[in-house]
């Protein structure tokens, strides 16, 4: 890098960007997971008139780019009275995006539970709620773990897109420094390495967790 003092000067901003990236990632993941679970349960156990609209919404979110969704929300929102600052718009958009994908992952998990496990619960007299809570949700969790870890990684990478609507997260902070100092490629390289490290760490943690849960898995 051409000027080391410039980097030192920009450091607090970059660190803030990293924290904002991590915070938005974790918050959007958590929100997306909870909302996704609600959608999955509503679609699995609810009536058709609940399932159909949710199917359509999930399909539209999964069928369009995140960037277009975020543009629609951020630039289109004010025209329907939804004026949001970049950060809340980004967080809301990312959480919705995650919820659509998580709902499909979790629904798939619910459908993959062997029906006999549910029947066994009915036969010893568990109520429907107990069967969902004690059997279906834990088994679903085991089944969806790899796909969910994948989705967490996807969400981490999508946080970079939020820089386009000027959320001051890591990508925004580092490219901002890069263009101020004509160090575009160095900035991009630093970003690549930081994200690569974060995604590998997340994937590794996921694999570790999967190994720990291995004994619960039937062949």
């Amino acid at each position: 890098m051409s000027d080391f003092s410039a980097l030192r000067e920009a450091m607090p901003e970059i660190v803030d960007g990293l924290w904002l990236t991590l915070a938005m990632w974790l918050a959007a993941s958590a929100l997306g997971l909870v909302l996704g679970l609600a959608i999955a349960l509503a679609r699995r156990f609810g009536p058709v008139w609940v399932d159909r609209p949710l199917w359509a919404v999930v399909g539209v979110i999964r069928g369009t780019p995140f960037l277009v969704q975020i543009f629609l929300l951020y630039y289109g929102g004010p025209f329907i009275g939804l004026e949001l600052d970049p950060t809340p718009a980004g967080l809301g958009g990312l959480a919705l995006y995650g919820a659509a994908y998580f709902s499909e992952i979790l629904r798939g998990g619910l459908l993959a539970i062997p029906p006999g496990h549910v029947e066994a619960g009915m036969c010893i007299g568990l109520s429907r709620l107990q069967i969902v809570r004690r059997i279906m949700l834990p088994e679903m969790t085991l089944l969806v773990l790899p796909a969910s870890v994948n989705m967490f990684v996807v969400l981490l990478k999508e946080t970079a897109v939020l820089s386009i609507i000027t959320v001051p997260e890591l990508t925004m902070a580092v490219t901002g420094f890069g263009s101020a100092n004509f160090a575009f490629s160095q900035a991009a390289l630093v970003l690549a390495i930081v994200y690569w490290t974060l995604t590998e760490l997340t994937g590794g943690l996921g694999r570790l967790l999967e190994r720990r849960l291995d004994r619960f898995k039937l062949a």
Binding site: T175, S185, A188, Y195, E200
Partner: peptide
């Protein structure tokens, strides 16, 4: 592991 946006910026500038 690298966001596509970052990858594109990297290639575009490198």
């Amino acid at each position: 592991g690298v966001p596509l946006l970052v990858l594109l910026l990297l290639i575009y500038h490198v």
